[in-house]
Structure formats: structure tokens, C-alpha cells
Design a protein around this nucleic acid. Structure first.
Lengths: 136, 136
DNA sequence: CTTGACCCTGTACTGTGGTACAGGGTGTAG
DNA sequence: CTACACCCTGTACCACAGTACAGGGTCAAG
């Protein structure tokens, strides 16, 4: 199996080399195999997992939430119903985030629209109700 | 004008009372008016802004990013083009987040689908390619 | 056979976003 | 007029997510 060292994985995934050790400590990645002298040897699957973690982080999930997401497929002895329920819960959370972002998008688009209209008349009345409460 | 004290605003918005002072320090809210003896007096607009901050935080924006969002409508002497460009940038960021979340959603739905199919056959092979890299 | 680039562990430090507390003032209900 | 709940400031502390560094081992090139 193809393996790579710490620095190679870090470079490939664009993360700090120390973060890998941190993720290992936080149990987000399994302890990797070691070479004879104790060097960590990462697989392609580890790289994919690191990239997943990066992506999920960008989407506003905490490391604990990401751990939950990753666990969804790990515990094989768990009942299917339980996994199903947890996955559904995560799906609902994701849906809520999407809804919130769509509201944000609407407001931003409105602002752009207002600003463009205003340019024609030489005025720029951005008094948009950004924080109106019902918008988000 | 209707005003309220620290504790009232905190209760109304469901935030810790000290967070209000923190947001003031971070310039996310304007320093509120003060009573004769120096008590902070918040307006309904402050409450709306706090709620906006809470919402944006849930969507994965940092306080600095939220500050940028709020600034979009504040500086009136700024050129319209500049505001337009910044707003567009934010809009693109929001779109990227929505895309990422939709990918996440797809994978979760797929998992649910697989799990439901498997239930019929008594097996639950959740070996989904959650971290495959191309999924997100 | 040494020099430089990597690896190991443990521990300390950083920035973000709060949260708590000390020491003091205010304001109102009984 | 005294409790009690609230307000003020400043400062200390916290968890999270890293990031850096010290002190030491490994290994390949020249």
C-alpha cells in the first residue's frame, strides 16, 4: 500500500503539519501505521479524511460535530435505525444552515440590486434591513 | 424612544449579558446611549443587530466576517462601486458555502437511502465514500 | 561521517469568542 | 433604611483549534 509521511500529507492537504497530530489526539483520524523506527505512515484514505475535515470546517462544523459525522459510518454493530436517526438529524442541521445562507444571500442580492439602481440616479441609499430579525 | 437595559436585551436575544460588552468592544455594535448614571440603554435596533450576529455566527461566519457584513451598509461616504464589489464577494462566499452544504446533504441523503434499502435485506453496509474528496 | 531535512514526544503558547468575578455604585420594595 | 437586584469597570479565566518549540532520534546526499 502506498503510504506517506507527515509532511507529505500535510502538504498534499494544505494543513499545518502539527494539525495532523492534533486531529489524531482528537480522534478525528485513526492512529496511523508506523514505520520500524516509529514514523507515521499515512494512507490515501487518511488524506481523503483530512480533506473532508477541512471542507466540513469551512462549512461551519466544529471538530466535535465532524467527529459525529465521521462516526455515522464507523460503528458497524450499531442498529441501522440509530444510524438513520442520527443521519437524519445531521441532514436537518445542514438544511437549516442552507436556509439561513439563502436568507443571507437574498439580503445581499437585494443590497446589490438597490446599489445598482441607485447608481443610475446618483444616490446610494443602502439602508437595508440587514438585521431585521425576520430576514434570517 | 423605547430603550432597555443590558439584562433585558440579553434575555430578549438569548445571549450572555457579558457578550454584549464583548461585542461592543469588538465594535460589532455601536456604544449605546447611557442613562444619567451611566447605565447602557439599548434600542430595538440593537436587539435586531444582536440577533443578526447570532444568526450569522450559526452560519459559520466569524465575528470579523460579521463585522465586514455589517460595515457594508455603514460607510455612506464610500463609493457605491466599492460597496457593490464587497457585497458581491460576500455573496460569492455565501454561494460557496451553500454548494458545500448541498454536497454534504447529498452524501447524507445517500447514506439514508442506502441504510433504508439495507434494512429491507437485513444488512446495513454503510461504507459510503464520505471523505472521498470529490464529494465536497 | 557529517550536515540537513525530516521524524518523535512533550509541553507551552496563541487567537478567538466568550464567561466569571471582584470591588464598587444605583434604585426600589418592604 | 436596608436588602436585593441590577448596573459599572477592569481583569482573570475558560474551551476550542490549532501552532511553535525544545530536546532528541533517523536517514540520505555529498
Amino acid at each position: 500500500m502506498v503510504t506517506m509521511t507527515r509532511s507529505k500529507l500535510a502538504k498534499e492537504c494544505g494543513v499545518n503539519i502539527e494539525s495532523l497530530r492534533y486531529y489524531e489526539k482528537r480522534r478525528l483520524i485513526d492512529p496511523p501505521k508506523r514505520s520500524e523506527v516509529g514514523y507515521r505512515l499515512y494512507s490515501k484514505e487518511d488524506a481523503a479524511r483530512i480533506r473532508f475535515i477541512q471542507n466540513a470546517k469551512k462549512l461551519g462544523f466544529t471538530l466535535n460535530e465532524i467527529l459525529q459525522l465521521l462516526k455515522l459510518r464507523v460503528k458497524k454493530n450499531e442498529s441501522c435505525e440509530s444510524v438513520l436517526a442520527k443521519t437524519q438529524t445531521k441532514l436537518d442541521e445542514v438544511d437549516q444552515k442552507i436556509k439561513g445562507l439563502n436568507s443571507m444571500k437574498k439580503v445581499l442580492k437585494q443590497m446589490i440590486h438597490q446599489c445598482q439602481e441607485a447608481t443610475l440616479t446618483g444616490d446610494c441609499p443602502i439602508l437595508c434591513s440587514f438585521e431585521s430579525g425576520r430576514e434570517l
